[in-house]
Computed example of a mutant assay.
Amino acid sequence: MDNQRVALVTGGSGGIGRVVAERLGADGMSVLVHYAGNRDRADETVKAVEAAGGRAVAAHADIAEPDQVETLFATAEQHFGGIDVVVNTAGIMILAPLAELDLDDLDRMLRTNVRGTFVLARAALPRLRRGGAFIGFSSSVVGLAHETYSGYVAGKAGVEAMTRVLAKELRGRDVTVNAVAPGPTATSFFLDGKDQQTIERFAAAAPLERLGTPEDTAAVVAFLAGSAGRWVNGQTIHVNGGII
């Protein structure tokens, strides 16, 4: 089933997105690697997917802009003939106590994390083929409610709510809609700006006593994107080693 499938991975130029793209390529999918700003890193992801035996192409877009997202999907169709899986790893995280969070920073986060998810999903709906999957990204911090995360959590909670609604709206289409909610993961997205003591505290929080890896999350995405995950729908899957 998966050998001829096509995936769009947003945020595929680095972090979890890159590893997701590599994993889906290794599973036999053709991958459109989206990037927002770093073409060189996106090209590295393309080479990694190809080295794993898959086909890949890089494409730029602001996922909050409908015209650019339409072009993104047109690129996937031009190169690979259609689209089966959309994985939206792209996101922005700016941390500050609520009383100190700059409203421009809040708007930036909501624009990418909420509007971007909405725009991407809306463009995907008429294009996803039967047996397809839309996989959004939330965060385990929605439930953990750590200080300084209020603006980020507000957007990710919206992603989880959209996931449940969209799964119902796609009744009869044979397309699943789920979200993945990683916990603390050893990527620059999480590690930047944190001292060693803070990192160690986050690593100790899980019963498995380590930070997650991008590969941990990519394995769950691959499950949801493939034939084994077809009966999982409308869910947010927490990939965090047991942090509750």
Rank of each mutant, 00 (worst) to 15 (best):
H146L: 12
H146Y: 14
H146S: 02
H146V: 00
H146P: 06
E147I: 02
E147F: 08
E147N: 03
E147P: 09
E147K: 06
T148W: 05
T148Y: 07
T148R: 12
T148P: 03
T148C: 00
Y149D: 00
Y149G: 00
Y149Q: 08
Y149P: 00
S150R: 00
S150H: 06
S150M: 01
S150C: 00
S150N: 05
S150L: 04
G151E: 03
G151T: 06
Y152P: 01
Y152F: 14
Y152M: 06
V153F: 06
V153M: 13
V153I: 15
V153Y: 01
V153N: 08
A154R: 12
A154K: 10
K156T: 10
A157I: 02
A157L: 07
A157R: 11
G158M: 11
G158K: 11
G158C: 09
V159S: 01
V159A: 01
V159M: 01
E160L: 10
E160C: 03
E160D: 15
A161L: 10
A161M: 05
A161E: 05
A161R: 11
A161I: 02
M162S: 04
M162T: 00
M162D: 01
M162Y: 12
M162K: 07
M162F: 15
M162Q: 09
M162R: 08
T163K: 15
T163G: 04
T163N: 07
R164E: 13
R164L: 04
R164V: 01
R164S: 13
R164D: 01
R164W: 08
V165P: 12
V165E: 13
L166E: 04
L166H: 14
L166S: 08
L166V: 00
L166N: 13
L166D: 06
L166A: 00
A167W: 15
K168P: 04
K168M: 03
K168L: 12
K168D: 02
E169Y: 08
E169A: 04
E169C: 10
L170R: 15
L170E: 15
L170A: 09
L170F: 13
L170G: 14
R171V: 02
R171K: 14
R171H: 15
R171M: 10
G172T: 08
G172Q: 14
G172E: 13
G172Y: 10
R173E: 14
R173W: 06
D174L: 09
V175T: 02
V175H: 07
V175D: 08
T176D: 11
T176G: 05
T176Q: 14
T176C: 10
T176A: 02
T176L: 09
V177G: 11
V177I: 11
V177P: 10
V177D: 11
N178Q: 09
N178W: 08
N178A: 03
N178T: 07
N178F: 03
A179L: 02
A179H: 04
A179N: 00
V180C: 05
A181S: 14
A181H: 10
A181E: 10
A181I: 05
P182A: 06
P182Q: 09
G183K: 01
G183W: 09
G183Q: 04
P184I: 03
P184Q: 04
P184T: 00
P184M: 07
P184A: 12
